[in-house]
Design a protein around this nucleic acid. Structure first.
Lengths: 191, 191
DNA sequence: ACAAACATGTAACCAGTTACATGATTCA
DNA sequence: TGAATCATGTAACTGGTTACATGTTTGT
């Protein structure tokens, strides 16, 4: 019944790190940087998760640590068991994350705040996704130029297309919603 | 430095409950049921959050509890301060939730698993969103029929349209992705 | 000489879910 | 009478982030 060390067991952090190490051996620091510019759009990890998890991966035999002389740097590489574990995970069904959407909640209760509430919320949301689309366009250019012949490029393109598809849909919804808001405001003004 | 009771302070649960109580006075149990069928698609609360938060709302003067004779039932109603608090919250910018997408992570690493990995992941995801679209269609019918003249209907429609818009985009992405997967499989077979 | 980036790590906190305990009421 | 639903509540756990502490290396 003792309250033990308790590193998370059901987490996908471990699997995310296995995936990262499958690209190439890396240090914890490098993993974080790489996550940021590669999958940062749909995944993030903090050092507070990365370092303890890496140690657990070594303990479980899924990764090996190797001291990198120069700095106080530990480079981790996948073991055969780690690669097997990663492949097994790739085959498992993904649990859909049940998200919370604060903006939608505010719109749902907009009866208390009026059309103006909706307008400012939706305008900010539109700006957010318009920005995402610009970012995706840049990433796409860079991806096609720098990894033109990389065997995994087709898969990376798919994840990028997901973001583009979603953000386009969001912008569309924003425009339609703003049009409806205008109508509501006109009705309110007329009365 | 003592480890105190510590009910969450920055949570939006309190505001979500204020919103629910703005619809009508409710018990904790009722709030949960109502959340499920109204905003369940983009918001959920567990009893473990609801009951302690309701007590805090009373303590902070945002709600009043009234015993409902029949059962051991406490019905909460919004106070003027509570309504003011809700309106203030509606005006604040919404923090975008940074979500994690396990499916996209698996696709990103699909080099380790091959096109088959992507296919099964995407097929499941397509089924999920096709189901969502059917559910949304039902909700829309019910909404237009049962709340035809409700003053907040326009806002409720907007949140529904969001889900429809997003799920349609997801289905589109799935279809495009599955087409690409087929191409990849053909290339793999040919070699 | 100093800033920026590299590099590792942990304790405290946070927002939430799950599992469980308890009991009343309704209805077939 | 017994199952389903109504109703309230909490302790333990979970999966994470943030803030902090510490020190090295590189480049200007």
């Amino acid at each position: 019944m003792s309250r033990v060390a308790a590193l998370p067991l059901k987490t996908t952090t471990a699997e995310a790190l296995l995936g990262m190490l499958s690209l190439r051996p890396m240090s914890g620091y490098e993993i974080r940087q790489t996550i940021e510019w590669s999958v940062g759009n749909f995944w993030q990890e903090s050092y507070g998760q990365i370092y303890p998890t890496l140690k657990r991966l070594v303990k479980d035999g899924f990764a090996e640590a190797k001291e990198d002389g120069s700095r106080g740097r530990a480079v981790y590489r996948l073991t055969a068991a780690g690669r097997k574990q990663l492949r097994a995970w790739l085959k498992t069904p993904s649990r859909p994350q049940v998200w919370r959407n604060e903006m939608l909640l505010k719109i749902f209760f907009a009866g208390q705040g009026g059309p103006g509430t909706v307008r400012s919320q939706v305008e900010a949301f539109r700006e957010l996704h318009a920005g995402e689309l610009r970012k995706f366009a840049q990433i796409r250019t860079r991806l096609e130029r720098e990894y033109a012949r990389h065997p995994e490029l087709p898969y990376w393109r798919m994840t990028l297309a997901y973001g583009e598809c979603e953000s386009r849909a969001m912008v569309t919804w924003c425009d339609r919603t703003l049009a409806k808001v205008t109508t509501l405001e006109e009705v309110a003004d007329a009365s």
